[in-house]
Amino acid sequence: METILNYLGYFFVSIGAVFLVLGAFGILRMPDFYTRIQAGTKSSTLGAMSFIFGVGLLEPAWFIKTLVIVVFIAISNPISSHALARGAYKSHHQPYLKDGVDAYKEVENQKEVKL
């Protein structure tokens, strides 16, 4: 039982490490703020969650605490980057538009027409 838990723990920890590294590459490679923040958030949310979950499996005494932390990250991390990205857009930070389509602006314009 313990060895199975250990293997599962190492599995989750390595998945987390891989996703965190991929997120770092994403932040380096992406062209502008919005794409960088989505690369950073997606990978670091999954990466940190699975990393901490794996630690919880390796140390069963900490399992409940790590579950609480995982839930906290699952709520707070996407929300914070959503708020950052929305704040950047509202303060007129121009996104990098390869094809010139700004879907968010279109939605906002439709709203204004309705009102």
Partner: peptide, 19 residues
């Protein structure tokens, strides 16, 4: 003049504040 926080943030704050 800054716009208000979005609905997502407001809903999440209700959840996160007690935590």
């Amino acid at each position: 003049k800054s716009p208000e926080a979005s609905l997502i943030v407001k809903a999440a704050v209700k959840l996160l504040f007690p935590m």
